[in-house]
Design a protein around this nucleic acid. Structure first.
Lengths: 326, 326
DNA sequence: CTGTTAGCGCTTTCAT
DNA sequence: ATGAAAGCGCTAACAG
């Protein structure tokens, strides 16, 4: 029925060890025996059983990917980056959504360990000690992807969010804005947004800054709330924590009978595809989403191969992309 | 170091067989021995090795998911549906992107088989005999998700795309449109789009229909092309094969100095989040994206458990969601 | 350069 | 209701 390495060995008149050797290149095999094995493999249509291989070698060549929600544009793009590089290095990814629930996130580390993943790429809004504990217990190499670890205990790939916040704020300032709103999630929800907030605040005097803190970052729920707050608090500039919030901000402004960018300028974070599909197009602090994934995965391969690593905390660069909304 | 089932057995003073039994519930175990085992498991922090389990039982509880590109909104939403239901049934998913390349798609079936996935969920633009062959060879249960199999050989979950095309066309007709463009991908690229095209054509007389066939469905590339064609061919209604193309159509119309929906009405397929985040909001033929994934996965679990299945070709319902663009 | 032999950690008969 | 033992298909010493 299923053809095993043993069948190949018999067919090629060698031992299974030799077959294993040509399969893995773990030792030199004489050219013509190698050819015999290759022929046998082709003839039988043999494909090695990765599970057996995993059990024997204790390496599964699969890496676990834990994200809050693949259906979010930002996350999906990151996952694409991860998978591309994984494929390049002959790894497979096991994907799970955590919905940012700590208990689920911690559990997932456990199941990933049960599945003997070689490594883990982890994305969460707020890293807690429970997470770090789970990583340590599982003894799996982990790379944090687009998530802040204030104590830098875990290898990670990120941008400098504080600086990004500063860049957004000073961009608006340089465009003449004097009364600026920072549209974000309520503090504690996303460490990234919080960090950026710190950056924003460091550039804008308190009396010129209006914080609009949302419980929920979705366009639909954000739009009316932003509109209400903007009605009572006139601003001439908005920094939004995501493209979606940026868009909600633009529409809120427009609904109030004002114009973007003439009356109010809007800059947002992320630069998902959404940013260029709306009018006016969104000026953004562009995040290297694909690279978050790609670089994380690459870093993980280095960890797994024990290749030298210059920096366990890699900081990717972000940049302002100027478009119609400012 | 790593604690195995054997350690648990010793700790609980039973055989590994018994531990296995309480773990899997494959046989009745006396209450107090069961408790002893449970205690031992807790004390040692034992977690079963899924790889070993997979080798012994020939069931990995992981299912392969092959999609063109997770970073596409439509696909990401489907994947979310798959993963949710998979988690519910205690399956894990191994995700890969094929970029719709047939050779890669076929290869992936092979690697999935190497990894001994219990089943496969497959999404592709055009199912070819190479695919079907690969499925048969691999002997893995497969569910096609949001992809057409004209011959219905493979279990699948889809909507009635032909009818959806008709619905879109007749919707515009009923709104008084008399000169309609169908903005789609060049035939052969996506069987789904082609099928819908058939539906559209069946409702609209040739002389009233303008086909705009694009090599590439991305907003950026589509917009200028649509604009050019619309300049020379005035229409009063547009059916677009995706939200993104719908949005490109709206902007093309607006760029020509016309108004949506006053001068031109636009209806699109999909209903991704994009549809409600733009102005005017997109009227759409809504696709049950999440359910494509969820139902596919559920169907697959039935196949795997050999549960009775009423219909191997499940057709989900679509519906018109009327918004500002018409 | 190649073969022999133990396992890897579990499930699953087959006994008892 | 429980235990003993034989694999699952492969890798990895260890010999030679």
């Amino acid at each position: 029925m299923t053809v095993t390495i043993y069948d190949v060995a018999r067919e090629a008149k060698v031992s299974m060890a030799t077959v294993s050797r040509v399969l893995n290149g773990t030792a030199v095999v004489k050219d013509d025996t190698k050819q015999r094995v290759l022929d046998a493999i082709a003839r039988l249509g043999y494909r090695p059983n990765a599970v057996a291989r995993g059990l024997a070698s204790k390496k599964t060549r699969t890496i676990g990917v834990i994200v809050p929600d693949v259906s979010a544009a930002f996350v999906a793009e990151v996952v694409r980056g991860i998978e591309d590089i994984a494929a390049m290095y002959d790894y497979h990814i096991m994907l799970t959504n955590s919905d940012a629930q700590v208990s689920r996130e911690v559990n997932l580390v456990g199941t990933m360990w049960e599945h003997q993943v070689d490594g883990l790429i982890y994305m969460t809004n707020r890293l807690r000690k429970e997470h770090v504990q789970a990583f340590e217990q599982a003894q799996i190499p982990v790379v944090l992807c687009a998530t802040e670890d204030p104590e830098r205990r875990i290898p990670s790939v990120n941008i400098d969010n504080r600086q990004a916040g500063r860049d957004a704020a000073s961009y608006l300032l340089s465009r003449g804005c004097r009364r600026i709103a920072y549209v974000t999630l309520i503090p504690g929800t996303s460490v990234l947004a919080d960090r950026r907030g710190i950056g924003v605040e460091s550039c804008i005097p308190d009396e010129q800054l209006l914080r609009i803190e949302l419980r929920d970052g979705r366009y639909e729920t954000a739009l009316p709330l932003i509109k209400d707050l903007l009605r009572d608090n006139r601003v001439d500039g908005i920094v939004a924590a995501s493209d979606e919030l940026g868009l909600a901000s633009i529409h809120a402004v427009q609904d109030l009978g004002l114009s973007v960018p003439a009356d109010v300028k809007v800059i947002a974070f992320d630069n998902t595809r959404l940013a260029t599909m709306v009018r006016p197009e969104l000026t953004v602090i562009a995040q290297p989403m694909y690279d978050f994934g790609a670089v994380s995965m690459r870093l993980l391969t280095k960890l797994l191969n024990e290749e030298p690593v210059d920096d366990y905390t890699v900081t990717l660069s972000h940049n302002v992309v100027e478009r119609g909304s400012t």
